[in-house]
Design a protein around this nucleic acid. Structure first.
Length: 388
DNA sequence: TGGTATT
């Protein structure tokens, strides 16, 4: 990754904080809030690093006013970045100089002064494809420099870990402000860059949280008349906004939503924690149930037990799976499998549930469930043949 | 389509 020294005609420049070329000078923008001299943002932290560890690492450079590892509000998983606010600017500077570029596990952390938080700096990351294959990182930066202050940019390479990485023609550019990113889209999207043959595609990059939020939003908007304590067999009422499904209005019961919010600490557990305590050792335990299960069906990615759902309608959305399975316990993820060209559901999907007994209860109730009295769902633990 | 970038 390269950090680009911005081309703004500015102003006050703090001492450059060089560390292997990773840092840029901190610049105070025209009329903008002055960047903090004590508050640091730390990026690219290892996934399993805890806030305490972060604090202890940064605490070596001086007294810390606050330290926060940012976590996903719903799953509790680390988002890989955090903030450290020192009491003294000199200590913050020392931490940047010493820790920026530090290798921690497989990652190289980035430590820099945090810009003042505002709406304007959010969602300013662009995804670019169609970059001429002979373009290097600097060519990419030169192309995007004209539209604003680049915070960081990255040209993706084939075999990035290897030595002979060749540009893949795709990359990311993060601007200081979203409006700059918008200008870059306007100015570059669809245009053929100098020395290139194909038009560039420039658009906002996905951010991982958005998918989850979208699901929740969808669920909230499409909650059917269904109590978390009742079997979905009792779903009833007139068909409304959800089209062929029995959806009405906003969510009435927050009970299972509450459960999702409780998932945080559990999500960090290893696969062993997902298993019932007596699962491996008690021969009296539900042998019929265990025979149902293919060991391959047990996910070990922290998302719990994977359930295969067959005979979904072509217009099925993620929201339907959330609300069908949500009442039975903590759902960690859902996926409707779609045809590439038309995005119609291919008739099946997957649901991950955190707890085995809840997954089993969902399967027992929902297998054979008639959606709208028309389609009979087939629900089972995912077998090794079905890939999610 | 990243090494989850603004609490």
């Amino acid at each position: 990754m390269i950090n680009v020294i911005d081309n703004m005609e500015a102003q006050t420049v703090q001492p450059a904080m060089q560390n292997g070329g990773l840092m840029k000078p901190n610049v105070v923008g025209v009329g903008g809030d002055e960047d903090s001299k004590t508050n640091l943002i730390v990026n690219y932290l290892p996934q399993n690093m805890a806030q305490d560890e972060m604090k202890s690492l940064f605490g070596k450079f001086g007294e810390i006013e606050s330290c926060k590892l940012v976590r996903d509000k719903l799953t509790g998983q680390s988002l890989g970045y955090g903030f450290v606010n020192y009491l003294k600017p000199a200590d913050a500077l020392k931490a940047v100089k010493t820790l920026n570029g530090l290798r921690l596990q497989c990652k190289t952390i980035k430590v820099s002064f945090a810009r003042p938080s505002s709406q304007a700096i959010k969602d300013a990351n662009l995804y670019i494809s169609g970059i001429p294959k002979h373009y290097g990182q600097l060519d990419l930066d030169n192309l995007f420099n004209a539209f604003g202050r680049i915070i960081c940019s990255r040209l993706l390479l084939d075999h990035e870990c290897g030595e002979s990485g060749r540009p893949r023609g795709v990359g990311f550019v993060r601007y200081d402000r979203r409006c700059e990113a918008e200008k870059a889209i306007e100015g570059l999207n669809g245009n053929i860059p100098h020395g290139g043959k194909d038009p560039l595609i420039v658009k906002f990059a996905n951010n991982p949280g958005q998918h989850y939020q979208k699901c929740l939003q969808q669920m909230y908007q499409q909650m059917p008349i269904i109590s978390p304590t009742l079997s979905p067999r009792r779903v009833g009422g007139p068909v409304s906004a959800g089209g062929s499904q029995n959806f009405i209005g906003p969510m009435r019961h927050m009970a299972h939503c509450f459960r999702w919010q409780q998932m945080g600490s559990k999500m960090q557990g290893l696969i062993g924690k997902l298993l019932p305590k007596n699962f491996m050792f008690n021969p009296m335990t539900s042998s019929d149930v265990i025979s149902h299960m293919n060991l391959q069906a047990m996910t070990n990615n922290g998302q719990g037990w994977c359930i295969f759902v067959y005979n979904l309608p072509a217009d099925c959305e993620d929201g339907l799976l959330w609300q069908l399975f949500g009442p039975y316990g903590a759902v960690t993820n859902v996926k409707v499998v779609r045809d590439q060209p038309n995005q119609r559901c291919k008739g099946y999907g997957f649901v991950n549930m955190l707890n085995y007994d809840e997954a089993l209860s969902a399967i027992n109730t929902l297998n054979g469930y008639q959606l709208n009295g028309k389609r009979t769902l087939q629900v089972s633990f995912k077998s090794s043949k079905q890939k999610s």
